[in-house]
Design a protein around this nucleic acid. Structure first.
Length: 422
RNA sequence: GGAGACGUCGCAUAGUACGGCUUAGUGCACCACCCUGCUAAGGUGGAGUACCCUUCACGGGGUACCGUGGGUUCAAAUCCCACCGUCUCCGCCA
């Protein structure tokens, strides 16, 4: 949720942000009107309630003879109070509903426009070239006995798969490598619940435009999370944090579930876009003024990891229209996937500033002793999808795949993965 | 799945049988000051969160909050209902 004070005092800033996102600018005026209405009804209710409280004291201390008459008077007052309370609650609900449609104001410098308007900040590594026809990750995965899509479909349907043998080991190795790096960088590992209550899912902002992407279990009123970000953000909800010793940083390890509802027909081959995968997610709670520095720090950790794995990539500043409503800025890192002749997203790192924290009521104490919402950030450090880029980038003509040196310690020292039976 | 107990201001507790004298008491911890040669002990005072109004500001006034949400009532921590959570016992089970 945006800061209601900012809305009141600087609506133009929010309008500019809505505009570059391609979101509704009128919603800002609607919110302002709803705020005025809300405050008026609150005042009316509180004044009535104050007189009712006064009256209650009179009734309590009145001699029994007068009590009856006073109670009769108080009854009519009670009717007014009730009506005013209802009006105020309604106005509050209307205000909240409108304000929550407003997205987090983007940070200065975020490119305007939609998905294609991203700005490339830097690229790393030459695009790999082959003196043979490179195989795609699924063909390699099948040769290596690593990926089994057919049986995944048999058991669970399209976009499900088995990772088997070296494929399973590869994923565990990646996750562990990422975890060790996160530990070294001061992150606290956390294995998170993947089923969460509605208010947590809603608080992280995923029930908005992503609602149809999410698995829901009506019998239990629980949502399956598409990223451990949800549980990591909910972890400290309704708390006042002590950030005097620095940010709180967590590395969440979880399976992620996504319906991929809007992506019919896209990336149907292999494990690029699947309903279930594993991810190691970094999450940081920081003082708002440190959020942008933390954002860069997260991206640096991701780049270190990608470089260690010998992948070629570019870092992009995602355009305003392609940000989720919670993010004020988002850096994606996309690795080169040879057979697609394209960069594909491997990590996504969002600075949610205080937007998410305000919804989840996560605060810290300022120097003056007041409370204020913290900043939250999240970013990927490893996912199943990375296997795609690793297999394709490091493949050799005979279908074997070189294991990047940095990954070998987590694979028992294996330096080359060879086709099964070869 | 069945039966029961419980959820109060950071922690621990009182208050709930009889609704109004509770702007929720007490202890510990906390902060400021006083006192004692240091420490300990003692004394005095202060402390929650959110929102609304007012003020240039310091501040002042008000409303709500006793797990959450409803309800009864002139009035609810206290009565009623639902939900969430914790604990105990029984049953079942990978």
């Amino acid at each position: 949720m945006i800061d209601p004070v900012l809305l009141r005092e600087n609506p133009d800033l929010i309008k500019r942000s809505q505009k570059v996102r391609g979101a509704s600018v009128e919603a800002v005026d609607d919110a302002l009107a709803a705020d005025a209405e809300r405050r008026a009804t609150i005042q009316a209710f509180e004044a009535l309630r104050a007189s009712q409280n006064q009256f209650g004291k009179q009734v309590a201390s009145a001699p029994p003879a007068e009590k009856k008459a006073l109670v009769a008077q108080a009854q009519s007052l009670a009717v007014d109070v009730k009506a005013a309370a209802a009006a105020s609650a309604e106005a509050e609900a209307r205000f909240t509903a409108v304000v929550r449609t407003l997205a987090n104001p983007v940070i200065d410098g975020v490119p305007a426009g939609g998905e294609e308007n991203f700005v490339t900040l830097r690229t790393h590594g030459a695009v790999p070239t082959f003196d043979f026809e490179p195989r795609d990750h699924l063909e390699l995965g099948e040769l290596l006995g690593a990926i089994d899509m057919a049986r995944g479909a048999k058991v669970s349907g399209a976009r499900f798969y088995f990772l088997r043998g070296i494929g399973a080991r590869l994923e565990i190795a990646l996750m562990n490598m990422a975890l060790d790096r996160a530990l070294a960088a001061g992150f606290v590992p956390l294995i998170t619940p993947t089923l969460v209550r509605p208010e947590i899912m809603d608080g992280t902002g995923f029930l908005g435009e992503h609602a149809d992407e999410i698995y829901y279990l009506p019998a239990d009123d629980l949502y399956l999370t598409g990223t451990s970000e949800v549980a990591l953000a909910g972890y400290h909800s309704d708390e006042i944090l002590d950030l005097t010793d620095g940010p709180l940083r967590y590395a969440g390890w979880s399976t992620c579930y996504r319906r991929e509802a809007g992506s019919g027909g896209k990336d149907t081959r292999g494990i690029i876009r699947v309903h279930q995968f594993n991810k190691l997610e970094m999450f940081a709670y920081v003082l708002p003024e440190n959020a942008e520095a933390e954002h860069d720090r997260l991206v640096a950790l991701q780049e270190d990891m990608l470089q260690a794995l010998g992948l070629s990539y570019r870092v992009i500043d995602v355009a305003a229209g392609d940000l989720g409503s919670s993010a004020a800025r988002k850096f994606d890192i996309e690795a080169w996937v040879p057979t697609q002749n394209a960069y594909r997203e491997l990590t996504s790192t969002s600075n949610c500033t205080t937007y998410q924290a305000r919804r989840l009521d996560i605060r810290y104490r300022t120097e003056s002793g007041k409370t204020a919402p913290v900043g939250t950030l999240n970013g990927t450090l490893a996912t199943t999808r990375w296997i795609v880029a690793i297999l394709e980038t490091h493949q050799q003509e005979d279908g074997s795949v070189r294991v990047p040196e940095a990954l070998r310690p987590w694979l028992g020292g294996i330096d080359v993965i060879r086709p099964v039976g070869a």
